[in-house]
Amino acid sequence: MNGIDTGFGVWNPIAWTLLFAGALVIAWVFRVLGRSDYKRGSEQTKAFLSGNEEPEPEKLHVRGDHLYWGLVDGLAGYYRRIRAVHTGVLSDYVAWFVGVLGVVLIILALVR
């Protein structure tokens, strides 16, 4: 009743959720069975940065525009072009509209 049968695959979210919950429970059990000599707030929890002092959390925080810089850098060529397309000028928007209209017209006129 609650699942989907696409004809090519089956998806039952309730079963999936139960399975996921079971996995969570197992993970929790492992966590409980973990090392008993671990102490919170002691030297053990401090980050080890080659012996340097840990900086303030404000400085450690990875801000939003630093995430995925590698991916964006790798796609720099694509991004330079696609951002150049988003000019923000209304005339260009109208030109895109007229262009698409023209292409669709030609396709519909040619294809029987």
């Binding site: 959390p57 404000e58 990875v62 939003g64 995430l67 995925y68």
Partner: peptide
Amino acid sequence: RAFQAVFLGPRL
């Protein structure tokens, strides 16, 4: 990315 930038991290 949006979630990390807006909600996580120290109180900015």
